[in-house]
Computed example of a mutant assay.
Amino acid sequence: MNWTTTLLAGASLLLSGCLLSQEARVESDYSYAGQFRRYRTYEFVSGEGLNADSSRLGEAVRDAIRSRLKVQGYHLARRRPDLLISFRLFEGDMRFRGYQQEDFTKWVKNGYTEDENTPKDARKGYQPVRLLLSEGTLLVTLIDNRSNRAIWNGYASGVSVPPGPRGEVVLRRSVRSIFDQYHVFTAGYLNGQSPAGSDED
């Protein structure tokens, strides 16, 4: 199964069928192939929508992500970053396919990683769940730059962005809630070590 294709399709398509919940939520799912202990640097993906938005709303999201990742030891890197970060704001209600998985923090702490050498009978497998995310959803995706595969999705529903400064507050708060799901500090950061190869503090 191509996990990346499934993940991105689930993020962008409205799915039909039985829904598990209609309540606003903040959740995440992840790839078992993610090398979460290895990542130290990042860069934002440029593109359409909010990613390319140079207005205060787009910058509010980028600034909130930068602030949170700095606290966790990550550095912005223009050249060969470990992670690429994409984000997108969906308006209105959205049917979304997530995954029922082991707690992400526990997965990372135990150091598990699957790759092409992992025996088929030892692989975890992805158990999809269908959700209804209401009143707007902010989706943040982390992509492994080396493999070009999405390795983590965080999403917050109930994100209705009013005009003006209030909209910036809503987006910053949503980013904080999303990254509360991503409890990964860079290797050595808590011991006072700084990542090598960063272009910008």
Rank of each mutant, 00 (worst) to 15 (best):
Q22W: 14
A24M: 10
E27G: 05
Y30F: 15
Y32D: 06
Y32K: 09
G34N: 02
F36H: 01
F36L: 00
R37L: 06
T41I: 05
T41H: 06
V45P: 01
E48F: 03
L50T: 02
A52Y: 04
E59Y: 02
E59R: 13
V61F: 12
R62E: 05
R66I: 11
S67V: 06
K70I: 07
Q72E: 10
R79A: 14
R79K: 15
R80M: 08
P81N: 10
P81K: 08
L83T: 05
S86I: 00
F87H: 14
L89C: 05
R95S: 15
R95E: 12
R95K: 12
F96W: 12
R97C: 13
G98N: 13
Y99I: 13
Q101T: 09
F104H: 09
T105I: 06
W107C: 05
K109H: 11
N110I: 04
T113N: 12
E114T: 09
D115Y: 02
D115F: 03
T118F: 10
D121I: 12
A122P: 00
R123S: 04
R123N: 04
R123Y: 03
Y126V: 11
L131W: 08
L131R: 07
L131I: 03
S134I: 11
G136L: 07
G136A: 05
T141W: 00
N145P: 01
N145L: 01
W152K: 02
W152E: 03
G158I: 03
G158Y: 04
